[in-house]
Design a protein around this nucleic acid. Structure first.
Lengths: 190, 190
DNA sequence: TCCGATATCTAGCGACGCTAGGAACAAGAA
DNA sequence: TTCTTGTTCCTAGCGTCGCTAGATATCGGA
């Protein structure tokens, strides 16, 4: 009983170690540097142990993405609940979202560009994924008609996401980044 | 003289053949299926000839992306110039943009997600790339203050791009796609 | 102390992007 | 027409990738 418990605990710790190593490596050197061999070396185990924890590399990236969603949701919650009024809340949440994406581009990619097989907008969506969207929805609620809340939130979110991804791909003039953010917020806070 | 001319012509034709094959293969089976070996087999030449035309696989994808920009700009131009008024023009252009992205997801990815090394928003941006943005700017011009034209166009474009990419990644509820598009247009046409 | 099961590693498979070196070919000179 | 020279193109192979099979080591329980 206790022996098996210890083993399961150690196993869980190692799984967390894998995810943390993948995340750190992706953040410091990009996802191209995250190969299964490199990751194995990083955690000081051989390559096949990765496959005893995860189905494949994609599953490891998905696990990093889920961690990212947890972090992002927390940042957005903090920004929303510490704002003095509804309009400032929207601006602060948008700024927090953009800042997260800029500071953690690799994780943001894992969340939205790379890990396609995470279940979104469906009943079995992990809690962390729903929480992030929930924060956006709650910050929008005081500002829009109730009937359009969900759809407007999705549209606003898309605006943020588009700004960030086009910006990072070099498709937008960097110097106007703040002004574009301000214009976007202006369009959604009447 | 003529011999060299013929050779250069044949060479240009083969280069076009490579780009066309890459595009078709990407559209029908996705970019994962576009390997240099497969592409070589498709054009009935050996693998190394690809490298006598392009620096590498990325350059081939960039060439496909440029073709995509030419096509997209033409679609947007058609939509804009055949609309009865400025408001309809915005809606039609947005619809044409979304339709292009939905019908050619692989090319759209090459244009905006994968080929990062194309020069955007800079003096030496290829004409086709500037034309697409130019169409968006012209359709916005009658609707917004002149001082914010460029930035508002970028912001609107980001909204479109975000809707499309999040939608395709399964991040948004599919059934509300049209309504989100309508809401986005509404936000930018006062 | 030995056995059986679990955990972990070494070695290797097929496919990838890309490149070196040689064979085949065509154009101009004798 | 034959030989030389330069270009074009292919065969073969390098290192790396994600992933897996089979052997080996480790450890709890009899």
């Amino acid at each position: 009983m206790t022996i098996q418990a210890r083993r399961e605990r150690e196993r869980a710790e190692r799984e967390q170690l894998i995810v943390a190593a993948a995340r750190q490596l992706a953040e410091s050197e990009g996802w191209d540097a995250v190969t299964t061999r490199r990751l194995a070396r990083e955690i000081e185990y051989s390559q096949p142990v990765l496959y005893s924890h995860f189905k494949g590399k994609d599953a490891i990236m998905a696990a990093v993405a889920v961690e990212g969603f947890t972090d992002l949701a927390a940042r957005l919650h903090e920004a929303r609940t510490s704002a003095p009024d509804a309009h400032r809340a929207l601006a602060d949440v948008a700024a927090a979202y953009a800042e997260f994406a800029e500071r953690h581009p690799a994780i943001y990619d894992a969340m939205f560009t790379l890990a396609v097989d995470l279940p979104f907008a469906s009943p079995d969506t992990p809690a962390a994924l729903q929480d992030g969207f929930g924060e956006l929805r709650e910050v929008m609620r005081p500002l829009v008609d109730a009937g359009d809340l969900e759809t407007l939130t999705e549209t606003f979110w898309s605006g943020l996401h588009g700004l960030i991804t086009l910006m990072r791909g070099g498709r937008l003039r960097p110097q106007d980044h703040e002004r574009r953010l301000a214009l976007l917020i202006d369009r959604y806070s009447p």
